[in-house]
Amino acid sequence: MSVDSIFVHKMWNDNELSKMVKGGVPFPMLSDAGGKVGTVYGIYDEVGGVETRGRFIIDPDGIIQGYEVLTPPVGRNVKETIRQIQAFQHVRNSKGTEATPSGWRPGKMTLKPGPDLVGKVWEVWKIEMEDD
């Protein structure tokens, strides 16, 4: 979503993005002229008249599970967004019985929060697991 019109979205998709991604952008490119939606989400820059780089993960119940906002010069890490979605999905599927520690990816160990885990995270989670 940006303040550009849907016509500009079409031009961008057809003339540039379709050269990066076969078939073009697979998801809807939304137009937010005037930044109304961006204002409600707290990411519209009124001085510049543009949206900043806000990214929201919304679950199937319509609840915001996470967000990230960057100023325009720095781009995002899509892999990290996907990792977070996978983690939120895992937690949701476990009905809240599991939590994903720092650096978690699918297949890696989760934590089972509860009285037995208090003070014992150091025994099961090591700093090296952040990157392995």
Binding site: S2, E51, G54, F56, G62, I85
Partner: peptide, 15 residues
């Protein structure tokens, strides 16, 4: 889109 996961992504401008 309730019932699905959604990523809502804002960016400064096309191109």
């Amino acid at each position: 889109h309730l019932g699905k996961w959604v990523v809502l992504c804002f960016y400064p401008g096309d191109f």
